[in-house]
Design a binder for these strands. Structure first.
Lengths: 183, 183
DNA sequence: CAAATCATGTAATGTGTTACATGATTCG
DNA sequence: CGAATCATGTAACACATTACATGATTTG
């Protein structure tokens, strides 16, 4: 369950509440979990039981109390260990590709409409990504300023990989559409 | 549950048993389900209840009986309709990227080892893909010979997208490694 | 005044993986 | 003779999403 380590990674920056984490997950496309409560709040309970985080309840008059979680030395040690494990090869889940396998069932016009709609969707998504990385660089998020030059470099490379992946898909689909046999 | 439509896509080629489908899913990286029994056999039961496939039990003396599923007109109509729906944007799930976000916790040597191990893994995976697409083109699988020029074109494009995606990742990681700040 | 945000969480359901179970046959 | 393949399926668990529930505050 690597969502726990993603959470520890954030907490290694700064203490955060479940609600803060929820927003961070929801904002970022790279952290592919949907940013739903259930997973995050349950993970925090478990991390607490495992002594990898501590919980401090900040009572605020008028507003609901915030439960702020702080990473422990144990948590940091576990995070470090996880960071050294070889991750699985990147997974690509493309619904479009699966549809294309059987798409010969469609009339030429239908297929072209499908591809056009998908290309639009892709372009919107790509724009969203660009906006997001612009916002990140402007430093709006809780964790945003790189602590070392190496960290700055790594973050830039992560963004590069992400955006170029979708640019490649855009280029691919444009080329596919122009060369499509009409029958 | 789009695994049902992936199954219908296969059955639109030729009738198949659960076991056949299991192997087809397990072989193909693009069909990202793991090819486990549970999902496939359950999906077939449901498809049968929904009158999208028919079931014929072929009793073979000595061997266990095969339950062969055939797509119905209803199933084909549903498949056609699904094919026209705009799929979601391709999802990329990269554990490496998440690790890199927090990787500044690692010593330079540790980080480089991690990247080297991952690059090896990627290269192996890429070779596996090439072999697989070679086998597919040689026509070893149950469904393999394109029925029309357009289908041939679509299949080639699907393979292209898949392999170039991983080639891009390989190029990216090589470049990342060579430019990594040592501190 | 309605909608969004803050902040917590639970319930129900859906999706996906691993392991278990059976029993015959074929291949090295 | 042990391992793999053929062929079916169940059970247990892990992971993920949507919807529900509450209640105060801020913003348009």
């Amino acid at each position: 369950m690597s969502i726990k380590y993603a959470i520890l990674g954030f907490l290694n920056w700064t203490p955060l509440s479940g609600y803060d984490l929820k927003k961070l997950f929801a904002e970022s496309a790279i952290l592919y979990w949907s940013g739903n409560n259930n997973q995050i709040y349950r993970a925090l309970v478990e991390l607490h039981q495992e002594n990898r985080v501590t919980q401090d309840v900040a009572y605020q008059s008028d507003k609901p109390p915030r439960k702020v979680y702080t990473i422990t030395d144990q948590g940091r040690a576990d995070l470090r260990q996880w960071l050294q494990a070889t991750p699985e090869v990147t997974q690509i889940r493309s619904g479009l590709l699966i549809q294309l396998l059987w798409a010969d069932l469609l009339a030429p016009a239908e297929l072209d409409e499908l591809l056009a709609r998908y290309e639009d969707e892709l372009r919107v998504y790509h724009l969203m990504l660009q906006e997001q990385s612009r916002r990140d660089q402007a430093g709006q998020t809780a964790v945003s300023t790189p602590r070392t030059p190496r960290e700055a470099y790594l973050w830039a490379q992560v963004t590069t990989f992400w955006t170029t992946s979708y640019e490649n898909e855009l280029a691919w689909i444009r080329q596919l559409r122009t060369n499509l046999p009409t029958a």
